[in-house]
């Protein structure tokens, strides 16, 4: 087994709102090896997004440690965390989060402008099959199309890790498969470690490793000996 990209030790995230304490993550230990495709499955509210956010440097854990390679993310200052996100992380958000006043192309360019070795925005959009809609604004795109713009934006910088929060949530099976294909293609070509949150159990077939979440803990880990291709999926 290769060196892990992410190593979590007793990672805990507690949200306090009023008198209620929510253990979104409860002492999670975890290794995610380099170049793997990892799928996170679990019921709603089980802490998947929380984990992904912390791995992406968007949020900080309450306690515990999280390493990216040998970089301790829990110790980083804001500025270092920003640099980490800019240099290494591609993020696909659960709610797309496109800038409404920018076109699809410009939303991608937003990232390629600050990245070190990016693709051309048009190429990234072509990868998700949106070259024809390049100059449309988010409000002119369907939910699935917005999601694909978000994916193009995430992969355009050729990140070391690609973190996707329900990238196919809004898509029909055909486009869903194309999106998964695009993600796997990036993983294959660039060796990008890819973490995908999904509610679609059939997607676990394409993963090297599947993490099952329940109540802020990883309840089970499954490793697939042989990954299926996206084209073989059905849902």
């Amino acid at each position: 087994m290769s060196v892990p990209v992410f190593t979590a030790k007793a990672l805990t995230k507690i949200y306090v709102s009023g008198e209620v304490m929510v253990h979104a993550l409860n002492e999670v230990d975890l290794d995610i090896p380099e170049k793997e495709v990892v799928v996170l499955l679990g019921p709603s509210g089980s802490g998947k997004t929380t984990l992904l956010n912390i791995m992406g440097g968007l949020d900080r854990p309450t306690s515990g440690r999280l390493f990216f390679r040998d970089l301790d993310l829990t110790d980083l200052e804001d500025r270092e965390l920003t640099k980490y996100r800019r240099d290494h992380v591609g993020f696909v958000f659960q709610f797309y989060n496109l800038v409404p006043s920018l076109t699809a192309y410009e939303n991608v360019a937003l990232v390629t402008e600050v990245a070190k070795n990016p693709m051309r925005p048009a190429d990234a959009l072509a990868l998700v099959g949106l070259e024809a809609r390049m100059h449309h604004f988010p409000a002119q795109l369907s939910g699935g199309e917005q999601q694909r713009v978000a994916i193009a934006r995430a992969i355009a910088k050729r990140p070391a890790v690609l973190l996707c929060d329900e990238p196919t949530g809004a898509l029909d099976s055909k486009t869903g498969i194309r999106v998964i294909e695009a993600l796997l293609g990036v993983n294959r070509q660039l060796g990008t470690t890819t973490v995908i949150i999904t509610h679609n159990a059939s997607i676990q077939e394409v993963a090297d490793r599947v993490l099952f979440f329940a109540d802020g803990r990883i309840s089970r880990i499954r490793t697939n000996e042989a990954r299926r291709e996206a084209a073989e999926l059905t849902w």
Binding site: F95, Y96, S101, A139
Partner: peptide
């Protein structure tokens, strides 16, 4: 007020 647009895009 475009109901759909407001609810769809998170800006």
């Amino acid at each position: 007020l475009d109901l759909v647009a407001v609810l769809k895009t998170r800006d």
